[in-house]
């Protein structure tokens, strides 16, 4: 008879191997249930493209006021990168609320994962990694459809998708960390959507330049990660004009800092909850 140590077939994955296994787990689930999220991640942003890029764009086509706001670019082309970033933020924010709580409370998938050799930190990183994969995929599909509608100026849109993914992750990480601390049924989430996510999508320069906002609100815009992401994504998609390079660095640094802090907090809150 083989010794006890030889009998078990489980192996400890490497630090990133564990994260990859968590991402794979999400992917397997998604393959069976992708329809459930296709509406919110792909169909909904495309509806916004149609409503604002095409519909509203038709209303204001040729008006001098629009040319002044967009730098002469067609409104559809101008709004497209903004909507890509906005959609990534919406997906990132939503998927870091109820689904994360479900992993701890309702379906307990996180508890099941950490019963094996995978660590809570790897579960947190895997969640964020999966979100990046998902928003990237959704962003590429949306970009392709926008291109068919004539809303893409050049290959820079691919860089815009990348920036969107970063922006979505930067918003998702701190929300993920917060969700992991909740013992409730998520009753506070609607308030987060309405007081944080929705104002962010409306006041970050997605639909119109932020200099059109009231003086009072304008200083707050800098707090919004979506504004930083939109500035970068739009410059990338239109092929310029880029803000001066210290501003570009500032936008990137802000997003990376938010992502970094959020990720550290998420790893910590996941560990505290799952390893107690």
């Amino acid at each position: 008879m083989a010794g006890e140590a030889d009998r078990a077939t489980g192996r400890v994955p490497g630090p990133w191997g564990g994260v990859a296994l968590v991402v794979e787990n999400h992917w397997e689930w998604y393959r069976r249930n992708w329809r459930a999220t296709a509406v919110s991640t792909v169909v909904q942003p495309l509806l916004f493209v149609l409503a604002f890029g095409v519909g509203f764009g038709a209303l204001v086509r040729g008006s001098g006021q629009v040319a002044a706001a967009t730098g002469g670019v067609d409104y559809l082309v101008w709004i497209a990168p903004g909507l890509l970033a906005m959609s990534a933020v919406q997906t990132g924010a939503f998927d870091s609320t109820y689904p994360v709580l479900s992993g701890f409370k309702w379906q307990r998938t996180y508890t099941a994962m950490t019963a094996g050799p995978i660590t809570p930190g790897q579960v947190a990183l895997g969640h964020l990694g999966w979100l990046a994969v998902k928003t990237a995929g959704a962003g590429l599909v949306c970009a392709a459809v926008i291109a068919l509608l004539g809303g893409v100026a050049g290959p820079g849109i691919l860089l815009a998708v990348l920036v969107s993914v970063l922006t979505g992750a930067a918003v998702a990480a701190p929300i993920t960390a917060y969700s992991a601390t909740l013992e409730t049924e998520g009753a506070s989430f609607p308030a987060i959507f309405r007081f944080v996510v929705i104002p962010m999508t409306l006041f970050s320069g997605t639909f119109f330049p932020v200099d059109r906002l009231p003086e009072l609100v304008r200083p707050l815009v800098g707090v919004s990660p979506l504004w930083h992401g939109t500035e970068l994504a739009r410059a990338a998609a239109l092929g310029g004009p880029w803000p001066p390079w210290p501003a570009v660095l500032g936008h990137v640094a802000y997003l990376l800092a938010l992502l970094g802090v959020g990720t550290v907090l998420a790893v910590r809150t996941f560990t505290r909850r799952l390893a107690r």
Partner: peptide, 12 residues
């Protein structure tokens, strides 16, 4: 607040 003022500035 957002659309009324922001989009409004594009439409008149």
């Amino acid at each position: 607040l957002a659309m009324g003022q922001g989009l409004g500035s594009l439409v008149g």
